[in-house]
């Protein structure tokens, strides 16, 4: 795995700020965290990009590629944590939060944990699939820089084709993008989600401690107050923010909320 840093921390330097090690599962570019990195004071953001891990990336693109386990991914993150300066908190966006939670449990119990719209491992994958058209619309909306309404009638099985014309009209993709190109994108999006469902479903659920969940109003599962984590954590603090699953990483107000939580957890408020 080749982690990508937005800022660099000098290993072990007492005069240097602690690290916020954040696990990113791909889909959005790592540059999505630039605003968050700029908002943090006294904490350096260090992003581990799971999509740079060939085993993880290819398991979402090629059904012949075996899935890595959640423990494999968590151990890679833990190795990264051990190789740099002090880690003040572990964090993860989306599926990355699940990996961060397992990394904390396996190697750094008691390290504060910040989950950014991470959903607890749930058995009801069917219900999650019903949300996919909205999630994909939110993803395309993030690329366009403006909300893209989910189409009525689009379905997981339907290939999300109904979003093709709205996505081009909104500027989410270049105007000459063909239907075939769009179809590959929607296929990869759903296959990546399926990979994450499989990996999460095959693992024992972590039981986070000292964990905060930042949850956008229009996030992955708006109706679940703690994204299902109440079953696995006794002391989870839920903090609301604006936006959806994707825009939460770049909207000014939600980034301010995330940065404040990170600094609070790192003891830098």
């Amino acid at each position: 795995m080749s982690p990508k840093k937005l800022r660099h921390a000098d290993p072990g330097g007492a005069a240097h700020p602690p690290r916020m090690l954040l696990v990113h599962p791909g889909t959005l570019p790592v540059t999505a965290y630039e605003r968050l990195a700029a908002e943090l004071t006294g904490v350096v953001l260090d992003v581990v990009d799971l999509s740079a891990d060939r085993a993880y990336a290819h398991a979402g693109l090629d059904p012949r590629t075996p899935d890595p386990t959640l423990e494999d991914l968590a151990d890679s993150v833990a190795r990264r944590a051990a190789s740099g300066g002090a880690v003040a908190l572990l964090a993860g966006w989306s599926f990355g939060g699940l990996v961060a939670a397992v990394a904390a449990e396996r190697t750094a119990p008691g390290t504060p944990l910040l989950l950014l719209d991470t959903v607890a491992p749930v058995s009801d994958v069917g219900a999650a699939r019903d949300e996919v058209p909205r999630w994909f619309a939110d993803y395309l909306g993030w690329r366009a820089g403006k909300p893209l309404p989910p189409p009525a009638g689009a379905s997981w099985a339907g290939g999300l084709d109904e979003l093709y014309e709205p996505a081009l009209a909104a500027g989410a993709l270049p105007p000459d993008t063909s239907r075939g190109g769009f179809r590959m994108l929607s296929r990869a999006y759903t296959a990546g989600l399926e990979r994450n469902f499989r990996i999460a479903g095959a693992a024992r659920a972590p039981r986070p401690v000292r964990a905060h969940l930042v949850k956008p109003g229009q996030g992955l599962v708006p109706k679940a107050p703690a994204n299902g984590w109440e079953e696995f954590s006794d002391d989870l603090r839920v903090v609301d923010c604006s936006g959806d699953h994707y825009s939460m990483l770049t909207d000014t107000a939600s980034v301010t909320t995330i940065a404040a939580e990170a600094m609070r957890l790192a003891g830098r408020e």
């Binding site: 570019p29 290819h58 693109l61 993008t177 190109g181 990869a188």
Partner: peptide
């Protein structure tokens, strides 16, 4: 090209050729 643009390119190549190209081919 970001990862989205690479996937779109793979899909357009597949469409032009008329048979499936695994998206991992670009890697």
């Amino acid at each position: 090209l970001d990862s989205t643009e690479a996937l779109v390119l793979a899909g357009e190549l597949e469409e032009w050729l008329g048979f499936e190209i695994p998206p991992t081919a670009l890697w």
